[in-house]
Structure formats: structure tokens, C-alpha cells
Amino acid sequence: MHPIVGKTQLSPNVTRLEVEAPRIAQIRLAGQFVIVRAAEGSERIPLTIADANPEHGTITLIIQSVGKTTEDLVALDVGASIRDIAGPLGSATELIEQGRAVCVGGGVGTAVILPIAQGLHRAGVEVTSIIGGRSREWVILEEELSACGELIVCTDDGSYGRPGFVTQALADVIAQADVDAVYAVGPVPMMRAVAEMTRPAAIPTVVSLNPIMVDGTGMCGGCRVSVGGKTMYACVDGPEFDAHAVDFAELADRLSTYRDFEQRALERSHCAVDAAKTPQSTGTA
């Protein structure tokens, strides 16, 4: 059991949980993830370790509520516990050791970018982070990323920072200065757009993939992705890959495998909540 010791709402659908997991807090490296099972009977899902505090024995998980499983997870309050956390899994990010790097985060992908930006900053790399959201309230981890270097915030509606997509800001950054590496994590269309943008100048670009996964140790093969025409397992061969070699169309397609199921599960779960909230008829109404 892993007690939750901190909980913060970062945006309308993104929550930060600080959870006791002393062993993982001690040994995790940037880019690694854990497999989490909220309670008995819950689905196993992969979550990137956004941060860790080895002294307190806690890890930070940043969760976007997109379905029943993630909703169940963020419904847990401080004092409650997560049933199972396994890890740290996957390979650590290969960080460049000098020069200039751009870290691009879209949506909850910003949480994956954070430990990378921190690692680069610690190594003395000049870091520019570009993060985005639909509008101001969807922008997360601004303060944490500002501490790692330059930060460009974009909003789709222009309500905060620079109007437009993160890719447009990236285009300007790479036009203005030599960039030694780009790290991009976010929705598949964003990562694909970043890959296309850095391809002409052959800027080494790394993306962290989050395909469907069961065990996280290579045993199910559900997380297979095509990279450079070869099938790789994101859990053990990744989760980070050369963006210029990833078959993003296939990845996006495979991610939609359970869309119908997830929709139904969410509706079922909301119906159950609504039913519980509805006062029982007393016969006097």
C-alpha cells in the first residue's frame, strides 16, 4: 500500500499526487515510469515518475483524468492509499551533457518533460522549455520549469503567454539558435509535428511514448511500436525513442483500440455516481 501524502489540482483535469514509494524514490532516473493499480480490481496503467523526494520517500505522479481508471485514481484523497506501484520501469532518458536543448511539453506530457528539463539543467545544459494548453487554466508546471531555464508558454486561445501551438514557438526557437537536442512529450499529433519540424535540420529529437501496456516488463507485447521499421516494446526498449524513426500513425491508431470500451466504462461509472447522489425516493414527494 502506498499512502498519498500530497494532492494538488494543476488544471481542470490534471492532478498531482505525492505518494509514498521509498524504494522507487531512491533509485528512479529521469524518464522512468511506474505501473500503478489504484485498488483491488483496478486496471494497471503506466505513469511517468514526474519527480521524487528520496528523503521523504515519495514520488510525484501527474495524472490526467481521461477515463474511469484515471478518475478513480485522482478521486483518492490525502491519507488514502494506492494499492500497487511497480517500478521504476523503462530506460532512463539519455540526456545530452552540454549545449542547448529544447523541451516541448503538451498537456500532461509537460509532467514527463519536467524531470528531463531538471536533469538537463543540473548537467549544465542550456534549457528552453515550451509548454502549452488550451487556455491559461490548462497550463501546468510553469513555476517548476521556469527554474530550469527559459520558459515559453503558449495557449491556443491566446489567453496567456504566446498565442498558438507549441510547435510554432519551437519553429522560432530553432530558427534563432543552434539546438543540440529536442525532447518532446505530449499528444501524438504534437509529437509528430515536432518530429517533422526538426527533421529537415536533423536535430536529434527524442519523444516519450505512452502506448497501451499491461505488465510494463516486456511480457505482454501490447506496447509494441514501430521504430525505424522494427517492432519495439515501449516498456523495455523505451519509453523514449528517436522521434524521426517512430511510426506515429500506427501509434495513434493502436492507442484507440479500447476507445469504445473506455467510453462505456466512463458512462457506467458516472451513472453509478449519479445514482448514488440521487436521493432515494421516500414516497412522500
Partner: peptide, 10 residues
């Protein structure tokens, strides 16, 4: 001890 991946956790 569940959730212990040898080669990763230990």
C-alpha cells in the same frame, strides 16, 4: 513481495 521487478526495483 509483489511489485518487485528484479533488474529494476532491486
Amino acid at each position: 513481495e509483489p511489485n518487485a521487478i528484479i533488474g529494476k526495483t532491486y
